[in-house]
Design a protein around this nucleic acid. Structure first.
Lengths: 345, 345
DNA sequence: TTGCCCTGGTGGAACGTTCCCGCCTGGATG
DNA sequence: CATCCAGGCGGGAACGTTCCACCAGGGCAA
């Protein structure tokens, strides 16, 4: 069983020598296809076991022109949003017989790094590409579309040449709006966090504003000055407007930051002020916080993205598809009917 | 600029033909090493650009016997703990000129899958392996140690043949214990969550118990019946013991679950009961929750793990190293001096 | 002039696989 | 007895790259 330490990994030729056959025979035995006698077969498998053979995926991929690998670009592994999406993608890919190579972002992954990462994935000859980045603009993605089946997951991407699977932001925003309206809120603030170029957040914020206005609700849009400012920094200005009884945040993280500031200001949630978020993912979903938010169907997004990718592999000339998936309202303890006399706050 | 759609990716031979040189010249121009005239060089680079050439990492790796790739096994991408660790690893690896291939777990990654994933990484001929899994036992790791430099990150792994970088659990547990003792707690419960085989949790729980006993504190160890039970299910029994004024949890997630149950039971934290956690990672670190916990130095763990790996690559005969790193106590609002008459609760 | 080196360049082997093709053997068939 | 066929196996090309050995030609010193 114990072999002298080989400084080179054993190859099928080593196995061939060990088993007294040709490398062709070894290949056939290892792949389990082609004509090979039962006797030689077991002798070869035995030798492979003894030498601790591990196939060389590079050589295999090179000659077979197939890698059985899908590439995933993930913006920021630290955030549970991407973690969850990544796990869903990985799970479905494995079910489909593919391996996944991930290029994951360092926190604050620069755009240049994301582009470089895509090149790397391409150089590994992945058979499909899933882009999970709220930041990377379409013009950086289109060049890859014609080289390898590509799907953008987790954000709406209306570009006519790019397939995408994502949470339906408009519908989600409307669910939240309806929730607030049915509670009786008449003047609502929408927080706009200009996290540079993040399409998703922009889309959902816009949908919130539209939804509110359509329902005849007074709507105050508060945009933070620049990326340096914390979401919570908008709170004092909002409190100055004494008619506001609810704040809609574009993400749960921002929401938590707002809640903290409200607490420090002595404002009770939900008695004095209702607050909503968006995402419903990860540790923040604990009932301890009881966030009212919209849960994105990330598991389904991941599954559908892989399915779409594999379909695309079959038929490269398939028309582009954009697949919105419905999120679910999570009614927590951060929303309630507005106080009878908000101005007395 | 626009090329007719090539069904095969262009190779250096295509470039050579296009630029009217040999493939050797192309290789030298692309690598930027070896002797080549400025004129031919720019002609080649131009042709490469025009054809949209992307190098084939497999062919490169095959002939060069180097992949510039490190493999990372991550147990569960969904949990911020692994996400953070993963990001730190990736960042340092890129700095060192390596690419990272990740095998990430589906939630509740089965052990068998983790083993298979290690095989996959090996088949890609990674030049180093980082194992981030609290679950995978040493005997599954040792076979790989002699094939490729391997480091276990994020959990203590005392095996004499396995290098590891991790948060010093004993020290961390003692910091938390000292915190509680200095607040005046005299009877403390330690929650033991038997998440099958998780070494880390066992080590830190044991250290908490030892630390408490050494300081003469009454210590109640509460072990959950099996994996099916939620951490919070231990709460009623703990409340029955009216002398207990503090609960130590093995992880922040468990802590949050406990806090929620305590609130439902009408127990005020920290007035009636102090609670501590462990990890201090991710969204749960929000001041809104104010968890008293021990923050693991995951960024440093990741960095040191990669550094150790690269060192190991240089010198395969290096003696095994175990590198504990010190965590930091985060004093939040879930701990306070015990109530004067706890029994009156 | 001759010998030598330097520059810029070519051809071909090698990496570890898969797979096509062809060879051998032996038993069945005409 | 000659022929055929099928099973079992080996040889070698190919995949795309790197790198080594080699070569042509020009400049320069002896």
């Amino acid at each position: 069983m114990t072999e002298e330490k080989a400084n080179r990994a054993p190859t099928i030729i080593d196995i061939a020598r060990e088993a007294g056959v040709s490398k062709s025979a070894v290949s056939r035995a290892l792949l389990g296809q082609g004509r090979i006698s039962e006797e030689a077969r077991s002798r070869i498998l035995d030798a492979a076991q003894r030498l601790g053979y591990v196939k060389n995926a590079m050589a295999q991929g090179l000659v077979a022109q197939r890698t059985h690998t899908l590439g995933v670009l993930v913006r920021d592994a630290v955030r549970p949003f991407y973690g969850q999406l990544h796990a869903a993608l990985q799970g479905r890919a494995i079910e489909g017989g593919y391996r996944v190579v991930t290029a994951t972002g360092v926190r604050d992954f620069a755009l240049a790094e994301e582009r470089r990462a895509l090149q790397t994935l391409l150089s590994l000859r992945v058979e499909g590409l899933v882009v999970c980045s709220g930041l990377l603009p379409a013009r950086d993605i289109t060049p890859f579309v014609e080289r390898v089946p590509t799907v953008v997951a987790g954000r709406p991407e209306p570009h006519p040449a790019i397939n995408s699977v994502y949470c339906d932001e408009e519908d989600g925003a409307e669910q939240l709006v309806d929730h607030l309206v049915s509670l009786g809120h008449r003047r609502v603030a929408v927080l706009l966090v200009p996290e540079a170029l993040s399409f998703t957040q922009y889309a959902r914020t816009a949908a919130m504003v539209n939804g509110l206005r359509e329902r005849g609700v007074d709507t105050v849009v508060t945009e933070l000055a620049d990326g340096r400012e914390a979401p919570a920094d908008a709170v004092p200005a909002l409190l100055a407007d004494r008619e506001i009884t609810a704040i809609m945040c574009p993400q749960d993280d921002a929401m938590v930051s707002v809640l903290e500031r409200l607490r420090r200001a002595g404002v009770r949630v939900p008695d004095d002020m209702s607050v909503t978020g968006f995402d419903g993912i990860g540790p923040l979903t604990t009932p301890l916080l009881g966030l009212t938010t919209l849960r994105q169907p990330l598991d389904e997004v991941g599954r559908r993205a892989i399915d779409l990718l594999l379909e695309l592999r079959e038929d490269r000339s398939m028309p582009t598809r954009h697949i919105p998936l419905r999120g679910a309202l999570v009614a927590g303890t951060t929303t309630a009917p507005p106080p009878p006399h908000p101005a007395r706050r």
